[in-house]
Design a protein around this nucleic acid. Structure first.
Length: 340
DNA sequence: ATGACCACCTGCGAGC
DNA sequence: TGCTCGCAGGTGGTCA
């Protein structure tokens, strides 16, 4: 369910309320909630226990919590040539300044704007990777709060803060998993996920070339996480409406200015959503404190079937598309001449 | 190799 | 009241 802005809101909440704390105990209440971990939920929990949670990171719709070693055995040593250094300050000292987090590639172009050097953590060889799927939530709750109906995983910490981290997921499409970090600072299993459009190192030209190479249509391309990550059904429809592009428009003929304009709209709509806490239609998307975002009030396309286009007044339409829906203005977003 | 589809789940609202 | 159907923010595996 959540797309980049919603996941980023959650990441910020984790950074504020969870990073820096030490895992005391993990309870796995539903086996599907722990993914790709053959040894099972109990082993998953045992491997987290005693580790300090590093700075929450995100790429696209994935987020992860690096685990730092407190000195126990059984960990991959730091990569050669990288001096270990302390990962995190206490939560109170963590600051975050902008809408454009930078994740890795500390040797990349020196355009880093964040004061925090969040990058490859030499002393964090493994990480807990989280994907929220369609209905997942990460909540920081008081320990005595009643269990949510779909509570799947509970993480307790070894401090006196009296809050715990909960993974709640109605449909169980999401989950947590444990992974080694690859040399470029990502959990190994998400190496195929492209940078997201808010990443300062996103390569606009490479994206344009990839669009032209692909024989596909524009909405499929926007949803392809190996080309551009973080875009889902809502923000794809919103960006296409802003760019006046029909979702079935082939990408092959895209000019550089057209790609640039589309990317600009993707970034604008995501930043606008981020500024108001993301999009919530119901209680299924909330931040770590259980609060909804307000961007649903600002949607121009998604969910507006039968309502007037905010640009031209024509009634908006919904079309079944890939087992989901596409919302568009039939006048502003003309279909391509040849639709297969 | 690339592109297109569907299974994986639970719940809710509409219609009968 | 209660059934069935369609629909929901995503992804990976599999098929052509």
């Amino acid at each position: 369910m959540p797309e980049l802005p919603e996941v980023e809101v959650v990441r910020r909440g984790l950074e504020r309320w969870v990073s820096g704390r030490i895992v005391a105990d993990v309870q796995v209440l539903h086996p599907r909630a722990v993914r790709r971990h053959i040894a099972g939920g109990e082993d998953f929990g045992a491997r987290l226990k005693g580790h300090r949670i590093g700075l929450a990171q995100r790429r696209g719709k994935y987020l992860w919590l690096p685990l730092s070693d407190l000195g126990e055995a059984g960990h991959v040593p730091a990569p050669p040539g990288t001096a270990p250094r302390p990962v995190v300050a206490a939560p109170e000292y963590v600051q975050y300044e902008g809408a454009a987090p930078s994740h890795d590639a500390p040797h990349g172009p020196t355009r880093e704007r964040t004061p925090l050097r969040r990058g490859r953590s030499a002393d964090s060889p493994s990480a807990v990777l989280a994907h929220l799927g369609m209905s997942g939530q990460l909540l920081v709750q008081p320990q005595d709060a009643p269990d949510e109906k779909h509570l799947r995983i509970r993480v307790r910490f070894s401090d006196a803060l009296n809050t715990e981290l909960r993974f709640v997921d109605q449909r169980t499409f999401g989950g947590l998993s444990l992974h080694e970090m690859s040399p470029d600072g990502l959990p190994d299993v998400i190496a195929h996920i492209a940078r997201d459009p808010l990443d300062p190192l996103f390569d606009d030209d490479a994206f344009h070339e990839a669009l032209r190479r692909r024989r596909t249509t524009v909405k499929r391309a926007l949803l392809d996480q190996s080309l551009i990550s973080g875009v889902g059904n809502i923000y794809a429809d919103e960006a296409l409406w802003r760019a006046r592009l029909h979702y079935e428009r082939p990408t092959t003929g895209f000019t550089r200015p057209r790609t640039a304009e589309l990317l600009g709209h993707v970034r604008d709509v995501m930043n606008a959503a981020l500024a108001v806490g993301g999009t919530s239609f119901d209680s299924l998307y909330v931040n770590v404190n259980g609060e909804s975002g307000y961007f649903d009030r600002s949607l121009d396309a998604y969910g507006r079937e039968g309502e007037p286009c905010r640009r031209c007044g024509t009634l908006m339409r919904r079309r079944p598309w890939m087992n989901r829906s596409s919302y568009f203005c039939p006048r502003c977003q003309r279909p391509p001449r040849v639709t297969s």
